[in-house]
């Protein structure tokens, strides 16, 4: 293996070749389709984590794909890719959305915040991140970025939730490890930290 390769790039390469091999017709390599009149321009500006970034986006591309594979923001996870797990949760204008189930072209005028964009400029963790550490919320950690963003969005809308409200707020995020109560403890502590 090329020692230059980072672990991240190595993993990505493996994922790509495995998916291409395993799924056959299931995956398409999107081609640069010729544009028809009135259709969207591919080169767009996106406001991600407070920075405006120019990026070349296919018409049908999902936001999760753009974030991970064009902007290298791999904190956003892709698991089910069909709106059934929450691992890909990001904030669009402060509202939690599944980035696997929104087109990048639909968020041109919206502020996208991913898990990478939650901590402060000086590196201080977001209260949700801090509270999740203190409460040992994650187990394996795979669902954690989605849980963090969903919790942050919940607290923006409702800074002082009851435990039941927090449960509802995080109900669109699956955790295969079943660490739900630990995440809820984290949300309740985060609300205290923010008070």
């Amino acid at each position: 293996m090329n020692p230059q390769l980072t672990r991240r790039h190595f993993i990505k390469g493996v994922i790509f070749s495995a998916s291409a091999a395993a799924s056959g017709a299931g995956y398409y390599i999107a081609s640069a389709a010729s544009r028809s009149p009135g259709a969207v321009e591919r080169l767009i500006s996106l406001n991600v984590n407070g920075r405006v970034r120019r990026v070349d986006v296919l018409p049908q591309e999902t936001l999760a794909h753009t974030l991970r594979y064009r902007l290298n923001l791999t904190g956003t996870k892709l698991a089910c890719n069909r709106g059934e797990c929450g691992a890909c949760t990001v904030m669009l204008d402060d509202i939690a959305n599944y980035s696997c189930s929104v087109l990048t072209h639909q968020v041109k005028d919206r502020a996208v915040i991913t898990v990478e964009g939650l901590r402060a400029e000086d590196g201080t963790l977001h209260p949700v991140q801090q509270a999740f550490i203190e409460e040992l919320s994650p187990q394996c950690g795979f669902c954690t970025p989605g849980q963090v963003v969903a919790a942050a969005a919940l607290l923006r809308a409702n800074p002082n939730p009851t435990r039941e409200e927090a449960r509802q707020g995080l109900s669109g995020n699956l955790c295969r490890c079943g660490a739900y109560d630990h995440y809820l403890n984290g949300v309740m502590r985060a609300a205290e930290l923010m008070a």
């Binding site: 990505k12 790509f16 998916s19 291409a20 299931g26 995956y27 398409y28 390599i29 999107a30 081609s31 389709a33 544009r35 028809s36 009135g38 259709a39 969207v40 296919l58 018409p59 049908q60 591309e61 999902t62 794909h65 594979y69 064009r70 890719n81 087109l103 072209h105 639909q106």
Partner: peptide, 15 residues
């Protein structure tokens, strides 16, 4: 990097 996405090729209009 090649672009693999599960979304098929389509045109998009945003009226």
């Amino acid at each position: 990097m090649p672009s693999h996405d599960v979304m098929p090729d389509m045109e998009l209009y945003q009226p």
